[in-house]
Design a protein around this nucleic acid. Structure first.
Length: 569
RNA sequence: CGGGGCGUAGCGUAGCCCGGCUAGCGCGCUUGCUUGGGGUGCAAGAGGUCGCGGGUUCAAAUCCCGCCGCCCCGACCA
């Protein structure tokens, strides 16, 4: 490609609405342009890089035995009602009506469509296992699009769905995808690692996310350097000990705490109750029903765990207006010792199991109870791990201190089980003649997000540093004079033809610009290898080869092509 | 949706508090000359409904009201 024939609109300055580095570089390097919030046009070099990521994904999916299909973005409402997700996923669904007022959803994912397909086309265990995948545009009415391609309303996703005859088979399919994902991200030049994950609204019971470490990531990952344990903070547990049991069994006692409404205030004079001897009482609304959650005073509730453990489709903190009539006191004096309505469930964090000599609110403004023994004095409906892990806590597996870092989620694999096959009646006839539900898994990669994650991870002060595998062009030929009869331009054309013939993606910067402009742009867009052809070196029979991330080397003209080929190995 | 911020030429911005504008600057763009190995220099140009609508005023980019859009923090997620 000749630079003057394509469009690479580089910018000296980043538009003010770009906040993070990768977003700025996407815009400055002329890879994308925004049409509206969360909606982007891919410009020629951005599209080329995107296609390369897609190609790597296709190769690895095919290699893992998956088969490519293409499902419609426009999906009938009815199958979403059948799966129940018309309700549970309603916040992210884009809804459209046709001229006959029939309602359609723009696909945010495709479990319903593929399961409908499987229900119709798969009838026998002989056809299993099958793993269908597609690369397509997805639509999600994100509450808040952000950071360019990182979280967009319209984006490209690779989604795959496996169907197996048995749970063991489904595990094997899952493992194949897990391995394929590991290879895909490595081939894209990304340092991505798998972590245990919550399954969220998709459902299922076993899941990993593939994370790219980045300060700008939207996720927090808990990990152990000693044994390799890693989990999303929404899912992570630690080996932190339960609350120490004390050798006293005094009777429960009410005491006045006027104006004290925080854990911290109660830990100070004159009360001096340490946070780890307090029981924090939270009220949440789980699918419109109030529930009480008990946490130790120095612990934080993990709402994702709460959602998972309650089985609700949504939870939110109750407002003061909802709490007062329920418990008879305002937040700050709440407890579960008395005045708890019988139909309100009390979920307690496991760290409080057996705890005694605790202090908690009395459900009476300005009063607390002390000497509380949780199992003696509080009727707990269910014990669960509900706390958020903090850095430094002992690893649940090996006891070494855990660390936490931020990361970008680029892929997610789920073992779904039969949730969708049951809802959409996807059955097959097994070897024993029994009709059974297909055991499913689903596997997503945010393709556009992966592209941005590569940029977020591969850059320097001058611009992007593309890995060879996904660079829009692998080689940029930069003649410093572009007059057609000049030696530099003639040689540039020759190199261009030779490298192109070898299957290499080459761009020839034929713009009549000063060398500085061309060098700056080549660095900004981030081509892995640049060949400069200028009078000074040509006079010595040499050209300059500059890998984007290594030192410049002068080589004889006749050795130039082989040097480039060697660098690309 | 809650909280915070911002909308002035393709991009970055000054001016706004304290009304007086014929809206300034840098980059980019056009033309000519110049220069020719890391964003060359000089000159001449083109380009603006100051987000939109209403109001106050002799006068509004500037003050007031409403709306729209965008960005950041939170709930959501590939």
């Amino acid at each position: 490609m000749k630079w003057t024939q394509t469009l690479i609109p580089t910018l000296r300055e980043a538009p003010a609405d770009a906040e993070i580095l990768s977003h700025k570089l996407l815009l400055r390097a002329g890879l994308i342009r925004k049409l509206a919030g969360g909606v982007y046009t891919f410009l020629p070099p951005g599209l080329r890089a995107l296609r390369k990521v897609e190609q790597i994904i296709r190769e690895e999916m095919n290699r893992a035995g998956a088969i490519e299909v293409l499902m419609p973005a426009l999906q009938p409402k009815e199958i979403w009602e059948q799966s129940g997700r018309a309700e549970t996923a309603k916040d992210v669904l884009f809804k459209v009506k046709d001229g006959a007022q029939r309602e359609w959803f723009l696909s945010p994912t495709a479990e319903e469509v593929i399961t409908t397909l499987a229900a119709n086309e798969i009838n026998s265990y002989r056809q299993l296992p099958k793993n269908f995948y597609q690369v397509s545009t997805k639509f999600r009415d994100e509450i808040r699009p952000r950071f360019g391609l990182m979280r967009a309303k319209e984006f490209i996703m690779k989604d795959a769905y496996s169907f197996d005859a048995s749970d063991e088979g489904a595990m094997a399919s899952y493992q194949k995808m897990y391995d394929a994902y590991t290879r895909i991200f490595a081939r894209c030049g990304l340092k991505a690692f798998p972590v245990e994950a919550d399954t969220g609204v998709i459902g299922g019971n076993y899941s990993h996310e593939f994370m790219v470490p980045a300060e700008t990531g939207e996720n927090e990952v808990v990990f152990c350097e000693a044994c390799g344990y890693a989990a999303n903070i929404e899912k992570a547990t630690s080996g932190i000990p339960k609350t120490a049991v004390r050798e006293i069994s005094a009777a429960i006692e009410k005491f006045a705490t006027p104006g004290v409404v925080t854990i911290e205030a109660l830990s100070k004079e004159p009360y001096k109750v340490p946070a780890n001897r307090q029981i924090k009482t939270l009220v949440y609304i789980a699918d419109s029903k109030p529930i009480i959650i008990l946490m130790r005073g120095d612990d934080q509730l993990n709402e994702t765990k709460l959602l998972a453990k309650t089985g609700a489709t949504a939870v939110r903190p109750a407002t003061a207006e909802e709490i007062v009539p329920l418990l008879g006191a305002k937040p700050g004096s709440l407890g579960a010792v008395k005045n708890v309505p019988v139909d309100v469930k009390v979920y307690a964090d496991e760290r409080l199991q057996g705890a005694n000599d605790m202090t908690t609110g009395a459900n009476e403004d300005g009063f607390h109870f002390k000497n509380v023994s949780i199992e003696r004095d509080i009727k707990v409906s269910a014990w669960h791990d509900l706390r958020t892990v903090a850095a430094g806590e002992p690893c649940v597996k090996c006891g070494k201190p855990l660390k936490i870092r931020r990361a970008i989620e680029v892929g997610h694999v789920f073992k779904l089980g039969t949730k969708y096959s049951e809802k959409l009646n996807a059955t097959f006839l097994d070897v024993d003649g029994q009709r059974k539900f297909g055991v499913m898994g689903c596997y997503g990669i945010g393709v556009t997000r992966t592209l941005q994650a590569v940029i977020e991870q591969c850059n320097d002060k001058d611009g992007v540093i593309w890995p060879l595998s996904v660079a829009p062009y692998q080689v940029c030929i930069t003649p410093l004079t572009v007059a057609p009869e000049s030696e530099a331009m003639k040689l540039a054309e020759k190199f261009y033809a030779e490298l192109t013939a070898k299957g290499i993606d080459v761009i020839l910067d034929d713009r009549d610009e000063r060398p500085g402009v061309k060098f700056k742009d080549a660095d900004l867009v981030g081509f892995p290898i640049r060949i400069a052809l200028g009078e000074k070196s040509l006079a010595k029979g040499e050209v300059e080869i500059k890998p984007r991330n290594a030192a410049l080397q002068s080589v004889k003209i006749e050795n130039a092509i082989e040097t480039v080929l060697a660098l690309m190995k």
